[in-house]
Amino acid sequence: MSEDQTRPPTAPPSGASVLVALYLEKRADLVRFFTARTGSAAEAEDIVQDMYLKVSRAEGADVSNGVAWLYRLGSNVLLDRVRGAQRSGRRDAEWRGVTAVQVGGEEVEDVPPAEAGIDARRRLAALIAALDQLPPQARRVFTLHKLDGLSHAEVAARLGISRSAVEKHVMAALKRLSALAPANPTGGTSSSAASLGRTGPSEDLGGDAER
């Protein structure tokens, strides 16, 4: 996974330059927002900085709602950090004593090793049980949205229901999940994320933003 010189030799698309201008215009707002969101001005700066590369690479994003798109993008950068913290938390718990868990920046597989991952398995079982107890339609909506990655609008079209019905079902599922006792190393983001750097591939750039 080394070479990165393969970018097409074309000029950046016009959609990107519009978004970059918007980003620069809203930068202070974004830093203020993520300070409120994370409780840390330093982390907010990091997040907004991380956004820049993504904004400059974004192509053909629908710029009519560009500001909201920026907020979603930044929220996804933050989520990436949470995921990174969770992964390394899990690794620390499971592979205690093993030193090198990263090779050349490649993230090690997420599959818990047999012996150690009892907590992870218990937690997974709880998550599955919570989702399993949902009414069928809510479960269907949640699976399509969260696991298959369809947006609210796509789920609505697929199932022939309204967007607000999709939102209602996702809320029901999330409430049930968040009522579970929290997992041990997860949750808080402010303390851990900043020091971690990027653990995983930054997923779906504009993508999670749509979910």
Binding site: L78, R83, R123, L124, I128, L147, S178, A183, T186, T189
Partner: peptide, 27 residues
């Protein structure tokens, strides 16, 4: 509020972490 939202983000990210197992179990 922030702590409550952190918890939701945490669950949301956790679902990604368990994505494959959940997809299999639920489907």
């Amino acid at each position: 509020a922030r702590e409550a939202y952190d918890a939701i983000d945490g669950v949301w990210a956790e679902l990604d972490l368990h994505h494959d197992a959940l997809a299999e179990a639920l489907r």
